[in-house]
Amino acid sequence: MEVRRITITIAGRNYPLNVPSNEEETLRKVGKQIETMIKEFESNFDIRDKQDALAMCALKLGTNAEVVQSTNDKNINASLQRVQHLNKLLEAMEK
């Protein structure tokens, strides 16, 4: 797997990273999302300190990740229940 050296800028700081080439696009996209979020927090909430904006970004991204994980868990459980129900129906048909 090819590793690429890229630089991501967040809150005015450059972060050089060595990343697998298949992750480069995702990292750049997330870096831009963070930059956009920082600008939104700074303009909408009178945030003057970049650290406060970064903390708010971390909180928002963490919350979003938790919501997605919870939704995925619910979907997996619902699918598992459906499959178990179908298995019972198939077993009943075989008898």
Rank of each mutant, 00 (worst) to 15 (best):
K60M: 10
Y15D: 07
R82C: 01
K39V: 03
L89Q: 10
S70R: 08
K88Q: 15
N44R: 12
A92T: 08
S43Y: 04
D49M: 08
L80I: 06
N87Q: 14
G62T: 08
G31A: 09
G31V: 10
T9K: 02
Q51T: 14
N87W: 02
K50D: 10
M56G: 01
D73Y: 10
E42K: 12
L80D: 09
E25V: 09
K88L: 11
S43K: 09
D46P: 02
N18G: 13
I38D: 04
H85D: 11
V19Y: 02
N44T: 07
K39E: 15
K95Q: 06
K88V: 11
L61D: 06
Q33I: 05
I10D: 01
M37V: 05
L80V: 06
N14H: 14
A11F: 10
A53Q: 00
A78Q: 12
L89R: 08
I34C: 01
I38Q: 02
E40A: 03
I10A: 04
T9P: 00
N72H: 10
E40H: 03
A78F: 11
A11V: 05
N22D: 15
L27D: 01
L90Q: 14
N75H: 06
I6C: 00
N18F: 13
L59K: 01
P16G: 13
I38C: 04
I6P: 00
I38R: 01
N18S: 15
I6E: 00
E42M: 14
Q33A: 06
D52M: 04
K32P: 03
I76R: 11
A78W: 09
N44G: 08
G12D: 09
N64A: 15
V19D: 02
A92N: 13
T26L: 13
I38S: 01
